[in-house]
Amino acid sequence: MDGKYGGYHTNTLNPTCTGTSVIAVVYDEGVAVMSDTVVSYGKSARYKNVTRQYKVNDRVIVAFSGDHADFHTLQNIIERQVSKWAVVGQKLNPSALYAFLTSLMYQSRCKMNPFWNTLIIAGWEDNEDGGKPFLGHITQKGVAFEAKHTATGIASHLLTQVIEDETRDKTALNRAKAESILRRAVELAIYHDCLADNEFEIGVVGKTEKASVHTQKPIIGDWSIAETNCQYE
């Protein structure tokens, strides 16, 4: 073990190929999740058309920002959970997966080997009163919370206020309104986040909609104001 690090065990403690923000909004009968489809290698847009939303079953979607390789590991772990539930005829539900992943993320960070991801768990929670939408957010250190809307990465700083303004004190959103808020968020994201892309997906899961992820038309936005920015070429 006389290696470069003098025999100490080491973990990879920085991400390599990453995805930027995820934004999700709860509406009256479901949840909508937005993520773009570019994989960044540092600041460079290394790969395109790569999804960041994993459909677990017809009522749960897990979306992530952060390291793609770490998420592949998580995807594998989630798949094994789905099988474990399936052998007893059960369907993994969003709150169970949320609780499980929270513990997993916290356990990994305690071993000084964190998953470099922020996770968004979106789903429809069946219960005896007809069910309710579920939206959970888990950080790479295992801090977790449920919310009516949430965002990861730079969007959590830039866009949560925009979404809050759109949703607070309003009558319940419907799916169309939720998706239009997400499109507006994409536009603001590509203005402000140099890692964000205008090619994106919206995943939807709800009372009547089985979980599904849809590729969206790219948003161009209005760049005329950029001419007034002296640093813009």
Binding site: V88, S95, A96, A99, S103
Partner: peptide, 14 residues
């Protein structure tokens, strides 16, 4: 402990 919710009876049967 794992899932923060009650165990389905089917799991106990198994």
């Amino acid at each position: 402990w794992d899932y923060k919710q009650p165990v389905p009876v089917a799991v106990l049967n198994e």
